[in-house]
Design a protein around this nucleic acid. Structure first.
Lengths: 237, 237
DNA sequence: TAAGGATATAGTAATTATGACTACAAGTTT
DNA sequence: AAACTTGTAGTCATAATTACTATATCCTTA
């Protein structure tokens, strides 16, 4: 492979790429609705416009670490579910310069108070999926891609739990799937199916302060969660 | 988001990244075995060592186009199944420099004669998955990742067909799945399941020159293939 | 405090899918 | 023609799925 080897050396320092960034699609689930966290640009050409939170990769920092650092800078949250999506590399995605961006997506427990406190300091806001405005660059495309990816992913691995609080009811879980997948499900059948998976552990607790019969609270079994995540499974509903 | 916006501008020209390459895992299926096409380096520090075929992105070329150009330069094949995997970005993946690489994987119909002719010109060789030697950089990791990814992917979409010739028998198809997934399947049950999907069209042809009863040949129905690929489906065996 | 409303949870029955087989068919080889 | 190899059809018990109905439990309010 002389050709390729030669190219590796020749082009390695005068790359056609001006820069490479990271952009992160942060999903949250609030009151039955899937939301995405966006930030408003305060300066530059795109002042006032909304876009995905993002940034740059530091020297000696893996790209996964860069993404989780950026996420923590924005939200104050650590140990969040965060996965790489893919690189977006259309030559015209950013005007005048060739900038690739590595897309990441995160799933966070939306109701955390830390998060709300941290966010008021910046121009960041949750948008319902349906209400996302026109964003800078190709950020709408990145969100669309990540949503499709999420829809695929929740059917292969029980990652949806990352959007729920520690303790949740079966109906909350079902509504989460309904919202992500855009479908309607049947309560009794959902119960049976999810309980058969042995993924959930019933707690000795019930919902509080609801104006109807309180539902059983569950958490998921971390061991089985791990096993299912590694092995992959099928969450067809 | 002043902070992020400022960073976008400040760091955009003195990036911590020296270069970004593309590396491609090319899968083929030959005599019941899954193989990967590797190339031997002819010069540089890694002379004589094997690695994934790869190269650099040109100006004004999308990364997907760059990947398919590189694939065509090596194999002479066009219109090949080719998808991005993800970026590999460990700071130490290449010694002395910070080089990210975008991983791609391709599925090709292995027996094409064009391919064989083209390949003799270069130091490229098919390796069985089990026989892959120690490769340069993190290329073993990239192959492992792509294999896992392929295993997931063939259960969600009927992409496995890209590894088979136009016309194939049900048993060839079953062996392909067995090889990719590393499992054993049951013939009659496989037949029933795959035929129920209505994805296959029986041809008016049978196998030729086999020393036993000739099997029915099938092709896949392009329309249903497309529908299933978009919608996603479940190929659990 | 009893009735009504709302939601949780249990159960049923018809249908379909799955897994583990057996049996037979259709060619090849000796 | 018999033996062998692989293809294809069919069986049967079990499990999963779908579309329901029924009942339990708790809160609200009249």
């Amino acid at each position: 492979m002389e050709k390729i080897d030669a190219q590796r050396i020749a082009q390695s320092d005068n790359s056609a790429i001006d820069a490479i960034s990271i952009d992160c699609v942060i999903f949250g689930f609030n009151k039955g609705t899937l939301e995405v966290l966006l930030v408003q640009h305060a300066q530059g050409d795109s002042k006032g416009e909304w876009g995905l939170p993002g940034g740059w990769i530091n020297k000696d920092e893996s790209i996964d670490n860069a993404a989780s650092r950026l996420l923590e800078e924005l939200t104050g949250l650590e140990n969040v579910f965060l996965e790489q999506l893919k690189v977006f590399g259309d030559p015209k995605r950013v005007p005048n310069r060739r900038v690739l961006t590595i897309g990441y997506y995160a799933l966070i427990k939306h109701e955390e108070d830390d998060l709300r406190a941290s966010l008021v300091l910046t121009d960041a806001k949750w948008f319902k999926i349906k209400d996302i405005p026109q964003l800078i660059f190709d950020h709408n495309e990145i969100i669309n891609y990540s949503l499709k990816h999420l829809q695929q992913r929740v059917r292969q691995a029980p990652i949806g739990f990352n959007l729920l609080p520690e303790k949740f009811t079966l109906l909350q879980l079902m509504h989460l799937y309904e919202e992500i997948l855009g479908i309607e499900m049947n309560k009794p059948n959902f119960r049976r199916k999810i309980l058969n998976m042995k993924l959930l552990v019933a707690l000795n607790e019930k919902q509080q302060d609801v104006s109807h019969r309180a539902a059983q609270l569950y958490k998921f079994d971390a061991k089985i969660y791990k096993k299912l995540t590694e092995k992959g499974f099928n969450f067809e509903f």
